[in-house]
């Protein structure tokens, strides 16, 4: 993906071109491109007058950032403690099997990216699966197929 340098510049300028805002800048760039393309990181480094490695280091340290393009739908399986004791690992196994990817990966057809997350703060509903921003509470392995199906055949996605 080629990234328009002016888009990055606009984001950087909005934060006053400060090093302190690096994380916020990267968050906004990611919101714009759905991931952090190499060109965008280079542009950010150049604008902030930082060695590229520092930008790259931050981008690889925080879980929020992805250097790979992501799928159309984001499937996040909560592995918080409350979800864990109520059987989240079995749910994750089933999601893995259904999508045929490991956490952190994207399906071949780029429809789904699977991620695990350590608590989404909705512990009373566990086990929890969040697809895009829809919370699906009290999921069991048996319900996984039905939940994912809603997103599998919707053409362009929701």
């Amino acid at each position: 993906m080629r990234i328009d340098a002016s888009k990055v510049d606009r984001i950087v300028d909005a934060y006053g071109c400060h090093r302190d805002s690096l994380i916020s800048i990267l968050q906004d760039v990611q919101a714009e491109c759905s991931y952090l393309p190499e060109d965008a990181l280079k542009r950010v480094a150049k604008r902030l007058k930082l060695p590229l490695i520092q930008v790259y280091g931050v981008a690889t340290f925080f879980k929020a950032f992805s250097l790979q393009p992501r799928g159309e739908h984001m499937v996040r399986v909560c592995l918080g403690t409350a979800c864990h004791v109520r059987g989240a690992p079995a749910v994750l196994d089933e999601v893995r099997r259904q999508l045929d990817v490991e956490p952190g990966e994207t399906t071949e057809d780029s429809r789904f990216t699977l991620e695990t997350v350590n608590c989404l703060g909705a512990c009373a509903l566990g086990p929890l699966v969040v697809v895009d921003s829809e919370y699906q509470g009290q999921i069991t392995p048996g319900k996984v197929k039905r939940v994912l199906k809603q997103y599998m055949n919707d053409g362009r996605g929701k």
Binding site: E38, L41, P51, L52, I53, Q54, Y56, G57, T60, F61
Partner: peptide, 22 residues
């Protein structure tokens, strides 16, 4: 400052950005 730490936890490494010579 061409090299630095990337990743975290057991995935932490000392590398250059994107593996290119900085």
């Amino acid at each position: 400052g061409g090299i630095g730490f990337t990743g975290r936890g057991t995935a932490r490494r000392v590398t250059t950005a994107f593996g290119h010579t900085p």
